[in-house]
Every structure is written in C-alpha cells, then in structure tokens.
C-alpha cells in the first residue's frame, strides 16, 4: 500500500479497530478496566504507563492472546467489521497471521530460534499456503533487505544475530504477509540507544510505506514521541488520559501524566 492510499484511508470514518469497554480481571485484581478507543487506518497509537499499569494486559487482550472478561474488539476485516473476541478461534488465528502482526519485546518470543532467518520470514507465507521454495526465498531475501539484514545471512539462525538484528528479523517475519495492524510490545526495549534509533527509523518508514496501523506499548516516552500519532496513558488498569501525542506530553492534564512527563531525564 502506498502513502497515497494511506491518506485516502485516513479520510474514511471507518475505524480499523474499535475497542469498546474492554475489561480483564485477574481474580480480584484489575488487569485493565473499561478501555475504549478507535484506531483509524494509518494511525500509530502509543500506550504508556509504568510497570503493572495494565498496558501489556491490554495489548494481549487486543491481540487475542488473552480472553477479556468484557468488551468488544471490532476489527474491520475484508468482510466488514467483526468482533474478534467472539469470532471462532480458527478465524482469529488466521487473522493473527495475515492481517495482524505482533512484535514481542524479546525477539526470542517472536522468532523460532532453531530455524534460519529465511525460514523465520517464510513461515507466515507457508502458513497461508505458499508452496514454491524459490518464491518464498525470494520474498525472504527482499524482506531481509528491507530490514537491513544482508542477504548472505539468510541461512543463519537468529542465535548468530545481534539483539538489534534479531528484532529487525522479527519485524520482517511479521510484515511479510502485508498486515494492516501491528501490535508492538516494547519493540525497542533491551536495545542500546544507537540500535534503537535505527529501529525507530525503520519502523517509521515501514509504517508510512505500508500504510500500517500500529499499537505500541512502551514505557519510553521518547519512543512514542517519535513514532506515535496518538497517546494513551494508563495507570492501575485505567486509561487516565489520551490525545495527540505531543499534546499529552507537552500539556498533560492528569496528575499522573504530569508526574510521568516530569520524571523523564532530559538529555
């Protein structure tokens, strides 16, 4: 999808993802409570909050990894809007490897460490029926190039890669089927600063070129400032504030957001 398509989408009033009253409890404790928002095509939404604020629980519920107790997660599928919470598991899993992508904080959770880089990238293609080795390999090489991994590393296993390369490989593996929505859990966590910058640049380029929508969970305010169009601040499982990213960061309204913003070390 080109950026022009993306802009045309941006003018539609049909959200790509509509979340309504999403609630998840762990026994008596709240994971996340009554979360509602719309995500439009081409938008990047950041979710910030301290550890235990419920942002990872929310992401898991959105991505179908955890069943929520209440609420709806309506995705605009090719066949129209569908509630992914109540759809059949087979359909949800099929969507998870075609229309959706999930980038884990730890590449080990998102990669098959015993499988070569090419096999990792090719898996989603094979999962949706690709049966031509040469084509699969050509696409894998193309995608390794797009995430700046040299083609001659295609048969190396991820173990032989640096942390930043592993994370880029995970991104290639996820984006090869051209998803429309990407969930990212601390995608730059655990990487050193220069590698983070490279990854951020890469993600921004891919989001723009592919017209991706993304939901990024992070505790790094610098990351969301550079990547996210919109920001949601969570505390104790509740969304305490949401809005335009730079507005929330520069003119925070809620006490907790003000504390969060003022706690960041200035470089």
């Amino acid at each position: 999808m080109t950026a022009i398509d993306r802009n045309m989408h941006a003018e539609t009033d049909q959200p790509l993802l509509a979340v309504q009253g999403l609630t998840k409890r762990y026994g008596g404790r709240i994971g996340c409570a009554d979360v509602s928002f719309d995500l439009f095509p081409g938008e990047v939404l950041g979710i910030v909050g301290e550890s235990g604020s419920g942002k990872s629980t929310l992401l898991s519920c959105l991505a179908g990894h955890l069943p929520p107790d209440q609420g709806r997660v309506i995705f605009d599928t090719a066949a129209g809007p569908r509630d992914t919470v109540t759809m059949a598991e087979a359909e949800r899993r099929r969507m998870a490897r075609t229309d959706w992508a999930f980038v884990h904080q730890n590449p080990r959770d998102g990669l098959r460490m015993g499988v070569s880089a090419g096999g990792n990238v090719g898996e989603r293609l094979m999962a949706i029926g690709a049966r031509h080795y040469g084509d699969i390999r050509a696409q894998a090489i193309d995608w390794l190039g797009r995430v700046e991994i040299a083609a001659d590393r295609i048969d190396d296993r991820p173990r032989a890669f640096s942390g930043g390369m592993q994370q880029r490989l995970q991104i290639a593996r996820n984006l090869v089927t051209g998803p429309r929505l990407v969930f990212m859990d601390e995608p730059t966590g655990g990487l050193d600063v220069s590698v983070q910058a490279r990854l951020l640049d890469l993600l921004r380029g891919l989001v723009r070129e592919m017209g991706l929508s993304a939901i990024i969970v992070t505790h790094d305010l610098a990351v969301v400032r550079l990547l996210a169009d919109r920001l949601m601040v969570m505390k104790g499982g509740h969304v305490v504030e949401q809005g335009l990213t730079d507005q929330v960061l520069d003119d925070p309204q809620h006490a907790y957001t003000q504390l969060l913003v003022s706690s960041v070390l200035q470089v």
């Binding site: 598991e89 499988v115 070569s116 096999g119 090719g122 898996e123 989603r124 094979m126 999962a127 390999r137």
Partner: peptide, 16 residues
C-alpha cells in the same frame, strides 16, 4: 485448526 505451515518450514530448512 489445520495450521500446517510449520511442516513446510522444516522442509524449507532442509532445502536451505
């Protein structure tokens, strides 16, 4: 769910 793509990953690895 008949998700058998992984089986071909094994064969892919063989050829690679």
């Amino acid at each position: 769910l008949e998700e058998y793509g992984l089986m071909h990953v094994k064969l892919y690895e063989d050829i690679a």
